[in-house]
Nucleic acid binder design. Sequence first.
DNA 1: TTGTATGCGTTATCAC
DNA 2: GTGATAACGCATACAA
Lengths: 336, 336
Amino acid sequence: MTLSDVAREAGVSLATASRAINGSANRTVRADLRDRVLAAAAQLRYTPDANAQAMARGRTTSLGLVVHDIADPYFSSIAAGVARAADRAGLQVTLASTQHDPSRESGLVDLLKRQRARAIVIAGGRLDDEATNDELRAALADYRSVGGSVALIGQPILGVDSIVVDNAQGAGDLAKALHGRGYRRFAILAGPADHLTACERRDAFRGALAELGSPVPDDAVITSTFTHEGGEDAMRALLRRGELPELVFAVNDVMALGALAAGREAGIRVPQDVALAGFDDISTLRDVVPALTTVRIPLVDVGIAATELALADASDEPRLTHVPTQVVLRDSTPGL
Amino acid sequence: MTLSDVAREAGVSLATASRAINGSANRTVRADLRDRVLAAAAQLRYTPDANAQAMARGRTTSLGLVVHDIADPYFSSIAAGVARAADRAGLQVTLASTQHDPSRESGLVDLLKRQRARAIVIAGGRLDDEATNDELRAALADYRSVGGSVALIGQPILGVDSIVVDNAQGAGDLAKALHGRGYRRFAILAGPADHLTACERRDAFRGALAELGSPVPDDAVITSTFTHEGGEDAMRALLRRGELPELVFAVNDVMALGALAAGREAGIRVPQDVALAGFDDISTLRDVVPALTTVRIPLVDVGIAATELALADASDEPRLTHVPTQVVLRDSTPGL
DNA sequence: TTGTATGCGTTATCAC
DNA sequence: GTGATAACGCATACAA
C-alpha cells in the first residue's frame, strides 16, 4: 500500500503517481494517466503516509495546543475554537496537557518541536515565576528558531504573538456594575498570588472599588489555587472568618462553583445570604439557577484568533490582539 | 541540528550517535562515547525528528481521539482521561473533531490512518444509520488492516473493542428512584430517534416506569437533537402542550441545561413547578443550585479505560468492558 | 508531460 | 563495541 505499489499497478512511474495523487505545483498529469493512478490507488486502498510526506516536504500538517486541563471548560472552549480553525486550515490538532503542572509546558513545547508541528498555541495562564517562564521562553525560542510559529493566550510576557484578554477592564467594569447595584462590602477569592491573570482581575476589581469608596480590606482577599478546589478552600476560609461580606468575587467561574459548593455545605444560600460573581462566562453555567454574574470572554473566538495568529506570516515583532470582555449581570447578584 | 551533525561534532558515527541518544535494544555504547554524544547533542540543541523516527521505526507515538465537540463537557471529560492515559504511555494525543457531523467520523479515521496513529479512541455516540456506520466500519477495518488498533466508547456495534456504558441499567435505576420519591407523571426529552445511547436511556426509563405502573404516554416523549439547543427546543414543545408533568427526564445533562433555560424563559421554576433529571453527571454542574439529579458516568475513567483498551495487545475477537453507572439524587427532584 | 535519481533524518542490519 | 550502509515512503530537481 505504498505509492510505489500504486505506480506499478497503474503502470506509471513513482513520480507520476505522486503528482497525480497529491498534485504538484506546476507539473500536471495527463488525464488518462491520472485516472489510472487514481483507480489503482482506490483499488489498493492506498493512503499516503503523512510522516513520509512530512519528511519529504519538510513540513507537517499538525498544530500543537498546550493546555493545563482539557476537562476545564475554560480550556475546552478554547480548544473547540482551535479545533475549528485548524480544521479550516487543513491541520491536525495535537493536544498537549500539563495536567495542572505549569513547569511541564516547556517540555511539551519540546515534544511538539520534535513532531515538527507547524505552529503552537499555548492556552495556559502565565505565572509570575521567572524560572518557569525563562524555561518556556527558551523552549519557544528554540522551536521558533527551526521555523515554528507560536501564539500565546494570556499575558504577552514571552515575546511572542499573543491574544490578550482585557482582564483589568472586565474586572473593573464588574466592580462598578456591582457597586451600582448597591453592594459595598466585598470579599475576593483571588487565586494564586503568582498567577498573572488572577492578579490582574483581583487588582482591577479592588482598584475600581477603592476609587468608588468601597475598598476591599486585605483580610477579605483570600488566595488559593485557580481551580474548583481552590474556590472551595477559599470560601471555607472566608466563612471561618465569621462575618459574611455582601458579595464574593471569585476570579474565575470554576472557582465560583467551588465557592458555591462550600457555601452550600455551610448552609449559605446564593444570593439570599451572599451574592456571588465569577469570571469567564463558562457556557455550561449560563442556564443554572441562580444564574451566575460574570465577565464574558468569547473563549471559542479566542481559540480561533489564536490559531489564526499562529498561522499568520511571521512578523519581526510580537503582535498583540486585544480581546474585549463584557460584564454579564445575572441573578446571583440581584442587588441590595 | 540533525543526528549527523551531532555525530560529527562528537566525532563518532551516525550509528553510535543514534544508539547513544535513543538507546538500542541489545547494542550498548561505551560510557565515554555516550557522554560525548550527549554533550554534543545538548550543545547543538539537537531534537530528534519524530517523523523520521516514525518512518525508520515503522510506528508512531501518537494516539487519535475522535469526538463530536470538545467543548461539550461529556467529551472534554473523556478527553482528559485519554490525555492522562496517553501521557502515561508516552503517546501524543491527536484530537479529531467532527464538529457535530457524525458522517465525518470515517474521514477522520482515514486522516488518523494517514498519520499512522498507533491507536484510535472513538468517543462519539453511534447512530442507527447503517450507511454512516458501514462507512465507519470500513474505515476502521482499513485502519486495523495496517496494524492500527481501535477502542470505541458506546454501543459495541462496530465489531471493535468497546467501552460499554450501562445506560439501560442507569436509566432504569433512575426511574425507580424517582418513582420511589413519589413522582408519577413524567415527560422525556428523548434526543434523536436514531441516537442509540439516547434510545437506550429513553427506553429503559420508560420500561421501568411502565413496570411500576406509571407508563409515560407517547406524546410526553419528545425528540430533539442531543444538544443544549435540543433540550431547549424539546422543553418548549413540552410547555406548549399545556399541562406540565411532575418530572422531566432529559437524556443527558447538557439537554437538561437547555430545558432549564427554556423553563426559566417561560417562568417555570425547578423544582417547585417541575422536577428535572439528567444523565452523565457533568462535573461542572455538581455544585449548581438546584443540584441536578442525574446518573453518574465516570467519564474520566471511561477515557482512561478506552485508551488502555486500545493500547492492549490485539485480540481476535472484540473485547467489551462494561462501565457501571450510579444514580445521584439531588435537589432538582426533591420528591412529592 | 513523464521518468530517474536523490534526499529528507532515523533506525536497523550487517560486517568489522 | 563501533561503523558503513541499506531501508522507510514520499517529493522534487533534473534529465529526457
